[in-house]
Design a protein around this nucleic acid. Sequence first.
DNA 1: ACGAACGGTAAGTCTAGACTAACGAAGGTC
DNA 2: GACCTTCGTTAGTCTAGACTTACCGTTCGT
Lengths: 98, 98
Amino acid sequence: MLDALGDPTRRSIFELLAVGPRSVAEIAADLPVSRPAVSQHLKVLKEARLVSSTAAGTRRVYSLDPQGLAAVRGYFDQFWNQALAAFAQAVEKPEEEP
Amino acid sequence: MLDALGDPTRRSIFELLAVGPRSVAEIAADLPVSRPAVSQHLKVLKEARLVSSTAAGTRRVYSLDPQGLAAVRGYFDQFWNQALAAFAQAVEKPEEEP
DNA sequence: ACGAACGGTAAGTCTAGACTAACGAAGGTC
DNA sequence: GACCTTCGTTAGTCTAGACTTACCGTTCGT
């Protein structure tokens, strides 16, 4: 899931879709890559549940998938709590094994 | 910053450090890669402000950097709001340009 | 002072995957 | 029905970067 957001181009697509839904050609117009490349990236983002598409004629309008966004948030919230707990514990106890 | 978490091995290191601080050798012991590989990954994570290290003798103990975690959370919170707004707007207005 | 851990760095290899070009399928328009 | 648009897919190329081996500096123990 974070694999999908690891690629810079894919992050750009992700951020474009955050502004509002777009078609494939409209996305490609704002990026320095070809349209097929955008299609391939969208496929990956779709499999990662980060975007969803609806067919409108021959056009496919893509938008962010709130479900995937919630999953990412949950992932980091989990580590946020773990990290803060470990951090607080480390501050209180400089060493423990004698 | 998300580039750093894009690599599976680096995510494993990240998740190990979420449990608690560790030395380089201790991290490498739980992963299927060599110790130098872990060192290289830690360098990337450090530059991304996701981990920090403290010297203890010849050992370097690494731990999660709360500052970096907060930045990641902020990034996704921003898109969370944008996405929900765009989503709600899309639901209310199926089309707009006549 | 000598040796042993521990870890960062350099050099080199090799694979995953990002990209383009070319083609084909489906839908809309006249 | 002919044509154009829009998009997904395939085949093939090429580069970024993940990994290992080897080496060197640093710090502790005796």
